[in-house]
Design a binder for these strands. Structure first.
Lengths: 197, 197
DNA sequence: GTCTATAACATGATAGAC
DNA sequence: GTCTATCATGTTATAGAC
């Protein structure tokens, strides 16, 4: 049952990968504080001290295991932007990457995760803000769009609010679309309410 | 400087109040896990064991110190509802009660806090859903409104996103208003995009 | 007797010995 | 790579002060 063609370096890489996978899952489920090195080691089938040997600290393990938020959206028109955002939300309501879940779950209680989240969300906000440069206060609008989607994602994925959990993702996206458009469009978004003045 | 008319029960109440105040502040700043009984005791100027004696457990202390989310909005028309929600948001962006902050900060990592948050948010959603019964999917719409405001509040108060932190509260409310209205109004809210077909 | 402080025990992160 | 030691923490049990 030995694998003679697997070098020591290969085995080390495989062990590292197992540790990272287990850590990602546990960090996503329980957050930074509640995840113990022992639990990660058990999940990976190794000795707890080995985890420390490989990664130096729990914090380093977290950083390595957790991928930052998805990259900012490709620059494009403001119209395509809304479609793109809602599409990623659709994904979010389905299967968000475990690393992103881990980050979101830890960002309110762990200062380092909070800093990473601030930076990642800031990049997204900047990207969206650039696409909204036609409107007034593009950055603020972008921040509101992002935090809105963040709130819905938290309510759905992390808190499991029944009202959201039981709704189909496309229905949520459909209801959210006009709201996001209202945030990205300058001035009073709807004509019918005030007929040109 | 002694207060001869202060009975033992009075002194006990005062000590309890000091402990609760310190706990509320620390829970709001650091969340449940990162707040230690020892730190609470130091903040209140008492012995750590006394805190346990008074409250039995850290969890009980948290429950006693943290007030639930604000009560659901008074039932009213859907129009008044939006005003009311944005008004509370205005408050939220200013000074949210420390207990609410503590709850929000802990709800992603502490299962008990998550359950409390689910219940409190569920009550708010039910209240708003009742006011939206004219529209389709009133509960889902209500949930999206609540999670939207939750996301903005988290981004502003707990994460401190610069784009939100630097914006005046009334400007945020003004930009958010059409978005919330789009969530509460039935049907396609804007004509210009697709002229009836 | 009730309030407060001290000590003891279990678990977790981390560092150094082997 | 594994084992042991150290420190911080939550919690329980115990002893002292009023």
């Amino acid at each position: 049952m030995t694998t003679p063609h697997q070098s020591r370096a290969d085995r080390r890489r495989a062990t590292e990968a197992r540790i990272l996978a287990g850590a990602r899952e546990l960090f996503a489920e329980r957050g930074f504080d509640r995840t113990t090195i022992r639990a990660v080691a058990t999940a990976a089938g190794v000795d707890p001290a080995l985890v420390m040997q490989y990664f130096g600290s729990k914090r380093e393990l977290f950083t390595r295991a957790v991928q930052a938020f998805p990259a900012p959206p490709a620059p494009g028109g403001a119209d395509a932007l809304v479609d793109q955002l809602l599409a990623t939300l659709g994904l979010k309501l389905g299967g968000l990457p475990e690393g992103t879940l881990a980050m979101m779950r830890s960002m309110l209680t762990d200062p380092a995760a909070a800093e990473q989240a601030r930076e990642a969300l800031g990049r997204q906000i900047d990207g969206i803000g650039a696409a909204l440069s036609a409107a007034d206060d593009p950055e603020l609008r972008a921040a509101l769009v992002i935090t809105t989607l963040l709130g819905v994602t938290i309510g759905h994925q992390l808190l499991g609010l029944p009202a959201l959990r039981d709704a189909p993702a496309d229905r949520i996206a459909a209801l959210l679309r006009p709201a996001v458009e209202a945030l990205t469009e300058p001035g009073p978004s709807c004509g019918p309410r005030r007929p040109t003045a």
